[in-house]
Write a protein that binds this DNA or RNA. Structure first.
Lengths: 207, 207
DNA sequence: GTTAAGATGTTTACGTTGCTTACATTAGGC
DNA sequence: GCCTAATGTAAGCAACGTAAACATCTTAAC
């Protein structure tokens, strides 16, 4: 930082690229994330990033990977080890708020086809998946029938809430309101069953 | 098709553009959808589409708008007027299958920031939103407390299932399996409450 | 220390894209 | 038949992703 850095080599261009990419993403949305812009921000020639990333998609996947890790941290910060539905709800709120605070990042993480050939990205995504599954199972230990299905359902619920909020389909102007809506939605779904009667016919017809 | 079409004007370039765009989207994904490619497919000069669409985003929004309408048709086809949870589940399956059959279209509809200045798109999206809200309310008439929250929750659940399946986060290889997973997830969520106990602390802390 | 090898950036260049501006062609009302 | 508006074309700009050839730095063997 202090020295004028009259050196030819950058030092850690690989990391600088994802940092620059992340900044561009948050400043100007997904359209602002171009390899050339990344190179400019890293004060490096347009072709330099290709030494570290095979193509644009590879860089995007690297960004998505750190996004998954930061999301995981964020969820853990909301509650270290939730074991009740209400603790789980706090994690859900954190999930949605992450999406709203970093919309472009969230969209690159989930809004485009995942490059399955990128091991780092796949691993980071799988880690989030596993983490969600764990805490749901801990929060609903009595789900005798199909714990996996329940975990899927809850994740989908929260994930869907995040996307719908992101698209402005539900208009919740401020973070507190969003939090209220999320809890209200979860609450509503959890109470609907008992009052609305158990759906008896909800069985597979495809076996 | 028969006549060599030696005419200068196209006839209905506006409609031809969205048709071509839709084809490109389904053939080659979102990256294949360029204005030039659309023009090529419509056998027209690269600048011609600009007579009908201000910019690329406008065309994309038009495509998204017909996507919303086709989704609505698809949901209605699954069940014309669902009024029970199990009928609603069939609509949910149709929603997810639409996403899986036309992934690129679904992603342009929901995976990128919605252009709020495009009235047609906004209206079509709002229509879907309203439709979903209606059928959920009809299927759960006893949701005394917050019918709106319940509708939001169910939509989010299905929407999330669609996206997670789309990203391969849940691996369901064939449409029948997807259908089973969707019903299982809904089923699991609806039964979890009664067995897992009512979450007493699920109240807003932000008032 | 010298030097050869490998890693890392630069330069230059090509083809494609979104978009603008100026121009050409057509259709329909008078 | 002519004028006007609607519609498509031609040409061109800046930015993009990417590749190849070249320059520079780092490292380690000698």
């Amino acid at each position: 930082m202090s020295a004028p850095k009259a050196t030819y080599h950058h030092g850690d261009l690989r990391a600088a690229c994802v940092r620059a990419a992340m900044e561009l993403l948050e400043e100007g949305g997904e359209t602002a994330l171009s390899l050339r812009a990344v190179a400019r921000r890293a004060r490096v020639s347009p072709a330099a990033p290709y030494r570290h990333y095979a193509d644009r998609q590879a860089l995007v996947s690297a960004v998505a990977a750190v996004g998954y890790r930061e999301l995981a941290e964020r969820l853990a910060a909301a509650h270290p080890s939730p074991s009740t539905p209400e603790q789980l709800a706090r994690v859900a709120i954190a999930y949605v708020q992450f999406a709203l605070e970093r919309p472009a990042l969230f969209r690159t993480m989930f809004g485009e086809p995942c490059d399955r050939h990128n091991d780092e990205r796949a691993a980071a995504a799988a880690a989030v998946s596993l983490y969600v599954r764990e805490i749901v199972e801990r929060s609903f230990p009595h789900a005798d029938a199909d714990a996996d299905a329940l975990a899927t359902a809850i994740w989908a619920l929260v994930h869907g809430l995040a996307f719908l909020h992101l698209d402005g389909k539900l208009d919740a102007p401020t973070p507190p309101v969003v939090a209220d809506r999320v809890t209200a939605a979860i609450q509503a779904l959890l109470t609907a069953t008992s009052t609305g009667g158990r759906p008896a016919g909800l069985r597979s017809r495809h076996r």
